[in-house]
Nucleic acid binder design. Sequence first.
DNA 1: CGGCACCTATACGAATTTGCTATCAATTAT
DNA 2: ATAATTGATAGCAAATTCGTATAGGTGCCG
Lengths: 305, 305
Amino acid sequence: MEIRVLRTFVTVAQLKGFSAAARALNTVQPAVSRQISDIEEELGVRLFWRSTRDVRITAAGETLLREALEILAHEERARKLVQRAGSGQIGRLRIGFISSACQAFLPGLVRAFTRDFPDVQVTLTEMNADAQAEALAAGQLDIALSRALPPRGAADVESLEIYVDRLMAFVPDDHPLAARQTLQIGDLAPVPFVLFQRSGASGLFDQIVSACRDAGFSIDIAHQSNSMQAVLSGVASGLGVSIAPGCIRQLNMAGCKSLPLLEDAGPVPFVLHHRADQVEPPTRAFIDLAIESRADIREKMKLSE
Amino acid sequence: MEIRVLRTFVTVAQLKGFSAAARALNTVQPAVSRQISDIEEELGVRLFWRSTRDVRITAAGETLLREALEILAHEERARKLVQRAGSGQIGRLRIGFISSACQAFLPGLVRAFTRDFPDVQVTLTEMNADAQAEALAAGQLDIALSRALPPRGAADVESLEIYVDRLMAFVPDDHPLAARQTLQIGDLAPVPFVLFQRSGASGLFDQIVSACRDAGFSIDIAHQSNSMQAVLSGVASGLGVSIAPGCIRQLNMAGCKSLPLLEDAGPVPFVLHHRADQVEPPTRAFIDLAIESRADIREKMKLSE
DNA sequence: CGGCACCTATACGAATTTGCTATCAATTAT
DNA sequence: ATAATTGATAGCAAATTCGTATAGGTGCCG
């Protein structure tokens, strides 16, 4: 009972004739005749009463007709479902992101994606860069968004730079430095720092520490927080100054002023990671969308500087 | 998307390997490989991630797997349904019968049939012989049970004699003839008759009239009724005597005595008619059962004489 | 680190299946 | 009566499918 035979059978039943069915199926009558008699033999059941003049379906044939119509419809439905799954229109997309991504570009990107792929189940999970790498390797994540560089030597992970941020200084409103237009990193030497904890964003942490060392002083970390939001809150509270990627200005923390650093103190890339192998279509679609949107994102991040 | 390919696909998905699937399907690995890559190309969708070491299904593959399992189950169900229909285990059986059949053998036959074919929808319709012939020709009836001879020249109808009854006399209990052990038809010459109407059972009617003429008198039909029951009722009421097939004694009408006729006044065959062409399996099964049971029926009808 | 075992992909000839042409037999319409 | 239409059958050609052989890659184990 192959699909092709069922289709032939249904056509014969509906057109009530072998020749008519053959015409409709773009084939010839003996082929139809053979397919029907083959399936009759296979099932051991007579499906049509034939006379030289007309064809009438048997009761067993009626039964098969009902079933065959359902099977054919089911096949059609399966085909469409699978093609939608294959083109990424249905499925799931598990994104891990660091919170800064929310201030940067993630909401817009996700909104654009769900507009084009409304039936894909998108899961957004905030997690630090290290946790992302782990989840990605374990196959629990499709997309990881962090400032981390591509982890070398790990599983086959491809990385795509979304945009490059730069480090900026954050000082309390009422701090003397807040009156300046620009700063050099060295200007921050005597001031205590508020910084995030190293664990989870070790790359960025080390980059900032290095920048200070390059500027000739050892950073004085007076307070540590577990989120950028908390860091800015600490700065606004006058606990100290901070250095952080420019994009977090968009948190618009009151009592906290951002100042460009004259040195280009190391680029801070924002990177999209995904496994190189076994990229499911929705993931592929999201990556493609990210590539498309990259120029816009960069433009937007520049404008907000 | 042929059934065979779906079956291969499901096996690959379940055994997580092309070679393993090939072994399970009693074929070789390249055949499996080709079938999968063919359907992938046909759908334009990747179904498996292959490496040289293991095979993992894609999200689209998972989708197809669910659908394919349903389609295969449906195909299996369709096959069984059709085979049941083809062997007569499901379907319908429309029987037309004259009321005497109820007194004779029909209930037992139908009971035996429904025991063997419990899922066949049996329709029993009481109708006179002429109506039966019409309905049979119109395809509204599968089996016709009457005393009529095979209608000559009509559509292709095959007839099967179930048993042969003989005519008997029925006289009121208090009638002088009721004291006799046997009668000759001629004994009934001076007596008024109660008889059924000719329309609908013309064959039997004419047979009785002829028997009387052969016995040398013209039958005096004083009353006509539209059923055997009514005829016997008339006899019991003393309206007259009657001649009828012996089996209707089983109505056990009080006040009415049956007497054998010395002459073998024409055999009264009870016949099963069915269309010679396009015999649906349940009909075939019933006919076969009738043939099997014929000896028993004849025995039973003899015993009750 | 190299050989071995196991996996999938590909190539190609063989076997099977399927389709097509021609023809027959039966029935109906003209 | 003849032409036309329909389904069955046979024989041949085309297409498909299968099986063998082989290549290429990866993990395992000594």
